[in-house]
Design a binder for these strands. Structure first.
Lengths: 148, 148
DNA sequence: ATAAAACATAGTAGTTTGCTATGAAATGGG
DNA sequence: CCCATTTCATAGCAAACTACTATGTTTTAT
């Protein structure tokens, strides 16, 4: 299914920050922007949402930047996407016009709610630490390729 | 998550048709449109997609109409939504610009593909027959309410 | 003071969504 | 044969959304 640029950028940014989480240093938007090849101005809007969701903390002014608010193990893909993806999680309540309430009710409980729960479960299972590990493994595999 | 009007209308229409599946009669768009309170002209576009996906068959001309191509038990919510919802199933391939391929790769396999699989599994578990049964039960519950 | 950063708000081109409009093609009933 | 009824096809359109860019204003270490 379609994940918007905001969601993809947010996830990639958080994983990127997690790669340096151990150092405790703050990271500037411009460095993330350059690392990922994403417009810095656009990232500002993404981080505004990440901050509102309390996934990152910030320090203003020179030498300032962002930090993860929690350890990568304590942040899930659900946390990140829920913070920035509106269409993925808005329960729009509307199904079908007021007629045929029994069909509407059946669709809501068997399809829409089941779907939401399934999505949440899948995303909550994936932590930033998991993504970090997979990324490191990918990098290692690539290194071996060149070594051979 | 957000399901578009097309998806909701398609699902409701198919369930509505399933309510009369046993009779073997064809059903006109205008009757579905009136039953559900949905614009007939818009439904035409929905049914064009349902037909392309071979979920319904049609008979043109006077006394014509639509029929389910298979029994309600053999049609899943996945079939219906996949037929009409584009954004729900298009694998857009794009994640993040070419930089940081290891993060991109991790996101794809751990988040996007896992999500797609989870969505498919949830939707394939729900047949039109299930929806029909839930709708009938809802109607019965309502009837009891009035009886008391 | 000044440069470097976060933060805030507004604008904008392109796409998607949810619908309407119009008409063509097919087909059974009179 | 004619005609009402239906499916089928295409085009248009306003509103919303998406993915950005532009232009600042704070804040703060040096």
């Amino acid at each position: 299914m379609r994940i918007s640029a905001k969601g993809r950028y947010a996830l990639a940014s958080v994983v990127s920050m997690a790669q340096q989480y151990a150092t405790g240093e703050s990271i500037t938007l411009i460095s993330i922007s350059e690392r990922l090849g994403i417009s810095k101005i656009y990232l500002e809007q993404v981080f505004s949402l990440l901050k509102r969701a309390e996934l990152v903390t910030s320090v203003k002014g020179s030498q300032g930047g962002y930090q993860l608010a929690r350890a990568p193990k304590q942040i899930t893909a659900l946390d990140v996407l829920a913070a920035v993806e509106t269409s993925l999680f808005d329960r729009s309540e509307e199904t079908v016009p007021e007629k045929a309430p029994e069909i509407e009710s059946a669709m809501r409980s068997l399809v829409f709610e089941a779907l939401d729960q399934s999505v949440s479960e899948a995303l909550i299972r994936c932590t930033i630490e998991d993504l970090l590990a997979a990324a490191e493994q990918h990098k290692a595999a690539h290194a071996v390729m060149f070594y051979i």
